[in-house]
Amino acid sequence: MRLLGGELRKLVKRPATWITLGIFLGVLVLLFLAVGASYQTIGRAPAGQGGGPEAQAAIRSLLAFPGAYASVASFIGSIGGLFAIVFGASAAGSDWGWGMIRVAVSRGESRGRYILGKLVAVALLLVPGAIAAFVVGVVAVALAATIAGLGTAGMGSPDAVGTLPWLAVRTWLALVEQAAIGFAIATLARSQLAGLGVGIGIYFVESFAAGFWPEWVRYLPFSVVTSLLREPGTAGGVDVNGSAGALASTTVDQTTALLLVLAYLIASAIVSAIALERADITG
C-alpha cells in the first residue's frame, strides 16, 4: 500500500497527467460538437459529396440516445486509447529519464513489485479518468444532439442506464490495456519518448493493416478494444480510426474481446516486470 500510495502521489501531482486528460476531454467535446453542428449541413449535401440521408443516419446513430452512450464509450476507448498510451508510456518512461528507477532499486525495492505497483497505480488513476471522460462525453453528445435537433429523448431509458456500469468497466479495461501497452514499450525501451512513439506507431499501423487483413487484425490489441466496446445488436461504435463504419469483418464477439484485452493487459505487465528484472540500470 505504501508503494501504491507513492506511485499515486507521483501521478496525481504530475502536470502531464492533467494536461493529457485536459487535451483528451477537449478533443472529445470538440469532435462531438462538430458532428452535431454538421448534422443539418450534411443532410442538405448531395450523397456524392458525403452528405445525404445515409450520412445523416450514421450521425444519428452516434448522437441519439440511448445508443449515444455506446458512442461515447467507443470514442473514449479508441481515440482515448492514444491518450492512454501516452499516459502509460510517460508513467513508465519518465522514471528512466529522471533516474528514479535507480533510486528505487538501490533502496532494496523489488524490481517486479515496483513496476507492477506503478502499473496498478496507472490503472487506478484511469478509473476517475474514464469516469470524467464518460461524464464529459455524455454532456458533449447531449449538447451535440440538441444542436443537431435530435433531442435527448432516451437518455434516461432504464434499459440503457442499466447497462452503463458494465459499459464503464469495459471502457476502463480498454484504456488500461492500451496504457499497459505504452507502459511496457517504454519499460522495454527505457524511454518515455520511445514508449509514446512506438506505441502510437503500432496503433496506426494496426488500424492501417485492418484494411488489408481484417480477419487477423481484429485479434490485435487495439482492434479488440473496438469489439469490447461495441454494444451487441447495435451498429454503434467507432473503429480505431474514429470513424463509424462497417465493423462486422473487423470485430470479434465481446467475450473473446474481453479475454483478449485481459490477455494483452497481463502480457504487458509480465513483459514490463521481466524487462525491468533483467535490466542493467546504468543511467
Partner: peptide, 23 residues
Amino acid sequence: VESPAFYPYLSGRDNLRVIGSTG
C-alpha cells in the same frame, strides 16, 4: 549515486515521501 535523481515537478518534501514509499 552519480547525480542526485528526483521528480522535478514535486517538492523536496514530496520527493522524499515518494522515495520513502520504496524499500
